[in-house]
Design a protein around this nucleic acid. Structure first.
Length: 558
DNA sequence: AACCCGGAAGGAGG
DNA sequence: ACCTCCTTCCGGGT
């Protein structure tokens, strides 16, 4: 019996990671996690994707006919543990108050929003032993639809997600629409050091959020901003899960992972998540620590390692396969001499060096190339790190990443390569003749960063440059002595808050089920066909019909 | 067709 | 107003 409970707990644990990943993938803003009671058997032949399914009201936790207890009977239709994702417009009316005590949508969702502009994703979890159901609801994350409490919840999420100093909430007594009208400067004044970040996040949410008529980005390089809300961080399993059926009150308390962002002003603000709990699931982006505040303070004797780690340590809610260990625990970087040429360390860094933080193209490329976890090798990779020769593996993809970084979404390889060619004349880059998409760095990053004005490089020819210029076999070259350890720690003290390449890529690639979801002995099936319906088009067009649905089925194969 | 090159104009931000 | 660092567009070459 204990083993079964333990298994179930592990299952919950993994499911929550899955949820987090899914939230990221679909850019949903989790607002609530509420337990529901296990359903009684009731025949419901309506297919999950049927427009005629009466599921909507049930999904919203409202009482429907023949369902006086607010129980979702459909759950009992399935023989195995299942996750059922649904997405659709919120269609409840004020005349039908929810009778589902834990799921008070009326108080949690702004009722003055157009019903077509809103969506709720609900997750039902059923264990085939019948002991537990859970229900998760998520709201879409178009910031323009946020109310004041949403805004505050978002800010708290940002505080944690990006390790920002506490915002002065008094300066953000506004709804999402007002928040979105703030300029970068406005945001910077309200939250010094994080204005850029907030601005970029909001712009991104607006641009790629659930705007009507827009498609969900399909490109593998499209960033999915990590809506890994702290209030939805999974919690370690507790034995309370085994009592959920018989004790609804306990269930309510125990299954609520962490406080939902309260939209009910009476209930106050969402609490901060328990860091000790969340740390195993979500590594805060150390690389985005407040630059001025943390300058040097989080540097230790393992400075080199940490600096490199932190730069590319985005928010992570790892999938089940990676929950057993801290996702970004400090570890040593390769220290072979071959890695030290273009693999920056912080040793040479000084606070006087300008911090480009990926804003400059060469810097951006360096960060991708030198990612300690090698997450960008599908975009760009070293051909010879010693000589600085690299190859753009995926030109359009890389260009898109760059465009995202610079907020020029029409960026393509043609334009980006033009920028690269401008580096020729300033001796930052040169083309590797005869090899497509191959370029060579002629300066190492610390050298470049030490030069405040890149254009000075036009006159300033380094010995290494002279050396490499005359040779046409860059792959065979050795670098000069002055091409010492370079500096990757430039982000560490950055005041800039542009999204790092690591974050972009991480957000894109994090969600890779089912391969990455190793819920043993569970087997995950994803109905890709139904997932296809999860588009903005469908979101906007299906407002009067059954919401598109996504079904994730987990079967116990043991 | 894709890639590569560099001129020209202009924009955003400092 | 000026500068840097691109971005955008383009004609031409390989």
């Amino acid at each position: 019996m204990k083993r079964k409970i333990q298994k179930q707990e592990n299952y919950i644990y993994n499911i929550k990671n899955l949820i987090s990943a899914f939230i990221i993938k679909m850019k949903l803003l989790p607002i609530q996690l509420t337990p529901i009671q296990p359903g009684n058997t009731r025949n419901n032949d309506a297919p999950l994707h049927s427009p005629s399914s009466p599921a909507t009201s049930t999904l919203l936790g409202q009482t429907s006919n023949g369902n006086a207890n607010g129980i979702d009977h459909r759950l009992s239709l399935f023989n195995h543990s299942e996750l059922i994702w649904r997405y659709g417009p919120l269609t409840f009316s004020s005349a039908a108050p929810p009778t589902y005590p834990p799921l008070d949508f009326k108080n949690h969702l702004p009722t003055n929003l157009g019903k077509h502009s809103f969506g709720v994703l609900i997750l039902y979890v059923k264990f085939y032993n019948g002991n537990l159901y859970e229900k998760y609801s998520f709201r879409t994350c178009d910031p323009r639809l946020w109310n004041k409490e949403d805004v505050l919840g978002f800010l708290r999420w940002c505080e944690i997600e990006f390790d920002l100093p506490h915002f002065d909430v008094d300066l953000f007594q506004m709804n999402g629409k007002a928040l979105c009208l703030l300029t970068k400067q406005d945001l910077g004044e309200r939250c010094p050091g994080a204005g850029d970040l907030l601005y970029n996040v909001l712009r991104w949410l607006i641009r790629d959020g659930y705007s009507a008529g827009q498609h969900l980005p399909q490109s593998p390089v499209t960033p999915h901003f990590p809506i890994t809300s702290p209030w939805c961080l999974p919690i370690p399993p507790t034995q309370e899960y085994s009592h959920v059926t018989s004790a609804p009150t306990t269930l309510h308390n125990s299954v609520t992972l962490s406080p939902a962002p309260s939209i009910d002003s009476q209930s106050g603000s969402p609490k901060q998540p328990d860091q000790s709990t969340s740390s195993a699931f979500s590594a805060l982006p150390n690389g985005y620590r407040n630059g001025t505040n943390n300058s040097g303070s989080n540097q230790s004797d393992s400075e080199v390692d940490d600096s490199a780690e932190n730069i590319h340590s985005p928010v992570s809610i790892p999938l089940a396969s990676s929950t057993s260990s801290p996702p970004y625990s400090p570890r040593s970087l390769p220290k072979s001499s071959s890695n030290q040429i273009f693999f920056p360390s912080s040793e040479n860094s000084s606070s006087s060096e300008p911090n480009t933080n990926g804003r400059l193209l060469w810097d951006f490329l360096q960060q991708l190339l030198n990612d300690s976890m090698q997450r960008y090798t599908n975009y760009i990779t070293w051909k010879n790190r010693e000589s600085g020769v690299f190859k753009i593996v995926d030109p359009p993809g890389l260009a898109k990443l760059w465009g995202i970084q610079k907020n020029h979404l029409s960026m393509n390889y043609d334009k980006m390569s033009r920028a690269l060619r401008y580096y020729y004349r300033v001796n930052i880059l040169r083309k590797v003749q005869g090899e497509r998409h191959c370029y060579q760095f002629l300066r190492n990053p610390s050298e470049l960063k030490s030069i405040k004005n890149i254009s000075l490089l036009r006159q300033q020819m380094s010995p290494s440059l002279n050396h490499t210029k005359v040779k046409h076999e860059p792959l065979e070259e050795n670098v000069d002595e002055d091409m010492g350890p370079t500096d990757l720690s430039m982000n560490q003290n950055s005041g800039s808050r542009l999204q790092s390449p690591a974050v972009i890529k991480e957000n894109v690639d994090r969600f890779q089920f089912p391969q990455d979801l190793s819920i043993s002995p569970m087997h995950l099936q994803v109905n890709m066909e139904t997932r296809e319906t999860f588009t903005r088009d469908n979101l906007s067009n299906s407002s009067n019909s059954m919401p598109p649905q996504i079904q994730i089925k987990i079967e116990d194969t043991s």
